[in-house]
Amino acid sequence: MGALPGAMIALLEHPEQLARLRRDPALFDTAVDELLRWWTPVMVFRRTATADTTVAGAPVRAGDKVVVSFASANRDERVFADPDRLDLARQPNPHLVFGYGPHFCLGAHLARCQLRALLEALLSRTTSIGYAGPPAYLRSNFQRGVKRLPIHWKRR
């Protein structure tokens, strides 16, 4: 799951948000979606136009390839106030991490539950978390991933 290491990086790079989540576990209701939006594991997706149309004033012909940038959409300042800021209480949060419409991810609910369960378990069992070395990122123009994320923690 590419979301978990991304969520960890988001929290490690924003220690004030990590402390906020530790203080207020009710934030998990909104935190999971914000962590997904901020990291956006699948950055782009390509689709093929099935009919002639216009997108943002640009003509698109049937058969043309169109790239959908989820990473850009999830940082759109017309949709998100201060889009580069990680805000675990962000509401509403109409991110497109799981796609949209007929291509919406069938596993979205499971992914949210899994991310929440893992983070709740980790934070309930530790008093501090930090980098134990630099992350190694996946080199890809499709998926925003992490190959290695060394961390250290102190147990409760």
Rank of each mutant, 00 (worst) to 15 (best):
R37G: 11
R116V: 07
P92D: 14
H14W: 05
L110A: 10
K65N: 10
E16N: 06
D84K: 06
N141G: 11
T40G: 06
R90A: 04
A81P: 00
V79F: 01
A108H: 09
V97H: 00
H95E: 12
A121R: 11
F142T: 12
V97Q: 03
N74T: 13
G101W: 08
V60I: 14
F142V: 13
P83D: 12
W153M: 08
T40V: 06
N74H: 09
G57P: 04
H14P: 03
D64A: 09
R75L: 04
L88C: 03
A73F: 05
Y100L: 09
A121I: 02
E120S: 10
T54W: 05
S140Y: 09
S128N: 08
Q114M: 08
C113R: 15
M1H: 14
A19I: 01
H152Q: 11
R144Y: 03
P5N: 13
N93K: 07
E120M: 04
P41V: 03
T40L: 01
A51G: 06
D52R: 07
T54D: 13
S69V: 10
G133Q: 12
M8H: 01
A7F: 01
Y137F: 15
A19S: 13
P92K: 10
H14G: 00
L12S: 02
V44A: 02
L123R: 11
R22K: 14
L27K: 03
A7E: 01
N141C: 00
P83E: 13
V32L: 00
A7W: 01
W153P: 00
R46T: 14
G130E: 15
